[in-house]
Design a protein around this nucleic acid. Structure first.
Length: 367
DNA sequence: AACACCGGCAACCGCTCCCCC
DNA sequence: CGGGGGAGCGGTTGCCGGTGT
């Protein structure tokens, strides 16, 4: 790739900090001069006008783009790029805005609940990343695509099956449900299973998040959301919404470190756990949905074949679990998946009663 | 300490779709 | 109805940082 490696790399949170700091200190003056161009003579300006920049975005370019969109709005990307003084293609500007600078972009770890949704939606739609992203507020198609190509396919390789196959979903979804339940256990510990299953959506999200959640949230989301709120005057997000979202977020790779101590499970315990896991996941997703809807980025329906028209996250996940990957009502649906489907009981699990990748791998060998 | 390898991810490319004239 | 331009989508590339040797 012929990227200009001499320019400042932009792509991490600290770079966004630079953008914000620059905006706060320079104010609107940043819009007057495209610092990235640097041309002083007419010849230079002519050259600058004709040569398009490629590669990583600089802080100055981000500032130009953000300020211009804040003032004039999105759309007409080619003319926007010219008007903003950016030596970028319209496509590049659009991509940068949608995938990185847009105020409602949520970055950071994909939550377990989001992973479940991605897995289910991908089974339904395949590589329709933008369509899948519509049902994950704040996530971009690019992020989901990268997540799928890197992590999901990696897991599939380790399990020696195709990431697109029902076989992989049968193996991986219970694992994700289990993790979702694990991450909810501190808040749900005092709630009887029957009550938890019948509880309203807010039940599992009203308690303060565990410390690990809060740190994650503060570091990766609140911090970012707060800064972006300052950056974009037209963007405001009530603190309560982000706080609610914080309780619903969980680290993507909290897996083994967050496992509870060893426990002995009965078959009934297992069934209850899966049901509870499903409930808490759905509840969390509903909270996320509510936040996203309030921010104007919740699940939307734009096509006639959108099976999730007018649904909440709970409905959405329930729909996903009630219908098989190919639209049937087979036992391959998520919540319909019972341990006996695998031909062995909970007693075959590891000592801690949880599934690990190794567990799954061993099971895979048995199939 | 130096090097190699690999995963994650931002960005680009090519294609298709859609809208306007 | 057809052409042109803009927008969007999915696939791919290549850099960067972390990790292993």
């Amino acid at each position: 790739m012929d990227m200009d490696m001499g320019m400042t790399m932009v792509g991490l949170d600290e770079d966004l900090d630079q953008v914000l700091a620059a905006i706060s200190s320079a104010g609107s003056s940043a819009t007057s001069a495209p610092a990235a161009t640097g041309g002083s003579s007419e010849d230079d300006e002519t050259t600058a006008a004709t040569e398009l920049r490629r590669g990583p975005w600089t802080v100055d370019e981000d500032i130009l783009l953000v300020n211009y969109i804040a003032a004039h709005g999105e759309g007409r990307w080619n003319s926007l790029a010219r008007s903003a003084g950016l030596r970028r293609t319209g496509k590049s500007c659009r991509l940068r805005w949608l995938n990185y600078l847009r105020p409602d972009v949520r970055r950071g770890n994909i939550t377990v609940e989001e992973q479940l949704l991605i897995l289910e939606l991908h089974s339904r739609w395949g590589n329709r990343w933008s369509k899948i992203a519509q049902h994950l507020p704040g996530r971009t198609d690019n992020e989901i695509k990268n997540y799928w190509r890197t992590r999901v396919q990696k897991h599939a390789r380790r399990l020696r099956c195709d990431a697109n196959s029902a076989q992989f979903r049968h193996l991986w979804m219970p694992r994700l449900l289990e993790r979702a339940q694990d991450l909810q256990q501190p808040a749900a510990a005092t709630v009887p299973a029957a009550v938890a299953q019948a509880a309203p959506a807010t039940t599992t999200t009203s308690a303060p998040p565990p410390a690990c959640y809060y740190n994650y949230y503060y570091d990766d989301h609140h911090h970012l959301a707060h800064q972006q709120g300052a950056l974009h005057q037209y963007y405001s997000e009530p603190a309560g919404q982000t706080a609610a979202a914080a309780t619903a977020l969980s680290p993507d790779d909290a897996s083994s470190a967050l496992r509870p101590p060893s426990s002995s499970l009965t078959a009934d315990d297992g069934a209850a756990r899966y049901a509870a896991a499903y409930e808490t996941s759905a509840n969390d997703l509903q909270v996320l949905h509510q936040c996203g809807a309030d921010a104007g980025s919740g699940p939307t329906t734009t096509t006639e074949d959108d099976v999730f028209a007018g649904t909440t996250w709970s409905d959405l996940l329930a729909t996903a679990t009630a219908t098989g990957p190919d639209g049937d009502d087979s036992s391959s649906s998520m919540i319909g998946l019972q341990m006996e489907d695998f031909g062995f009981g909970l007693g075959d699990l590891a000592d801690d009663g949880l599934w690990s990748l190794d567990d799954l791998f061993c099971f895979q060998q048995l199939c």
